Amino acid sequence: MGDNRVPGPLSLEGNAAENWKMFFQEFEIYLISSEKSEKKDEVKIALLLHCGGRELLDIFNTLPIEEDDKKDYKKLIAGLNVHFEPKTSVTHERYLFNTRVQQRDESFDSFVTDLRKRAKNCSFGTLRDELIRDRIICGIFDENLRGRLLRLGESTLEEVMKQCRINEVSEDHMKELTAAANPKTHSVRAKPKPNQDVQLSGPRGSEDKPICKFCGYRHVRRRSLCPAADKECLMCGRRGHFQSRCTYKGTRIHQYHERNIWHTYREDDEPSGSDEELEKSSGSECKSQ
């Protein structure tokens, strides 16, 4: 059976306990597929150390068991399992369990599955299901659902899980119906004020964008992205910046409203004379425009 893949070598990087568990499972499959599972213990041990590599051989040489036990395949494996068994703190595991809460976008099944995994290391005994039920009620994201679960009284884990799944399905259906009923609904955003952190590109709220000297907003340093790129300044009449950012010290444009007519003039052409003359000149200017 030369085509069988030989497992290994054993890696001690990362989670050594999980690495050993996976390596030994692959090794057992290798023994069966290559018809070596019925070989003598010394042959299987030699194969184990050969496949495991230098890391496993070093552990074998320093393993604190009797030398005769190192020649017995089952006893050797038992000793290696004890060596790789993770050292856990029940107090720490219970802390992780009791502080676990459902995240906003996390499904209920994902939340419960993680609670079950954590409960395995907490030594809850016969109280396991009750404590998982309590953690679901305390850690569920939906506060309205939590209130309904508390009103159930002395409920079982299965009953609580059933209610949570029904609620999740109902919420999904409501979202689908809302999206179907309002396909063209768009959110309306308030117009930002100058010097506010407006992001025309990039992550929202980022502080690494400079304040644009033309519009007063924060955005990528690119002229085409500036809101004032094609706007006419109401102060100087030039394009490319807002009035609030105008630094032009020359002739300025002024506007005023009189007798239902908007009058426009430059600072160096400030009108003089009577109101009648001004009205005539302004009216003719508006008509010509």
Rank of each mutant, 00 (worst) to 15 (best):
A78Y: 11
K184S: 12
K70P: 09
N98R: 12
E66Q: 14
P86K: 03
K74M: 15
L49M: 02
E93V: 02
S33M: 11
L149P: 08
R5G: 06
K193Y: 03
E154Q: 12
H241D: 06
E106Q: 12
K117M: 07
L76C: 09
T91N: 13
M161Q: 15
G79M: 15
P194C: 11
Y265P: 06
I136H: 07
T251S: 12
R222D: 15
K231V: 04
C226P: 01
L49S: 01
K40N: 05
S201R: 08
A180H: 00
Q103W: 03
P194G: 09
S244K: 00
D68T: 14
N19R: 05
E26R: 07
S187Q: 15
N144G: 14
E276Q: 13
T185N: 15
K162V: 11
R151T: 04
L49T: 00
E130N: 15
S288R: 12
L127R: 14
D69I: 13
F60D: 14
D109Y: 04
G250W: 02
R204P: 07
L177M: 12
M1L: 08
L96K: 13
F108H: 07
A17K: 05
K36W: 00
R146L: 06
K40R: 08
Y73L: 09
P271L: 02
N121R: 15
I253H: 11
K39M: 03
D3R: 10
L149V: 09
R133C: 14
D58H: 13
K39Y: 04
P64S: 02
E18N: 04
G153S: 09
S89K: 05
D72S: 10
D230L: 12
G153E: 06
V169I: 13
H50R: 03
G53Y: 05
G240H: 10
S272C: 07
D68Q: 13
I77F: 04
V188D: 14
F84A: 02
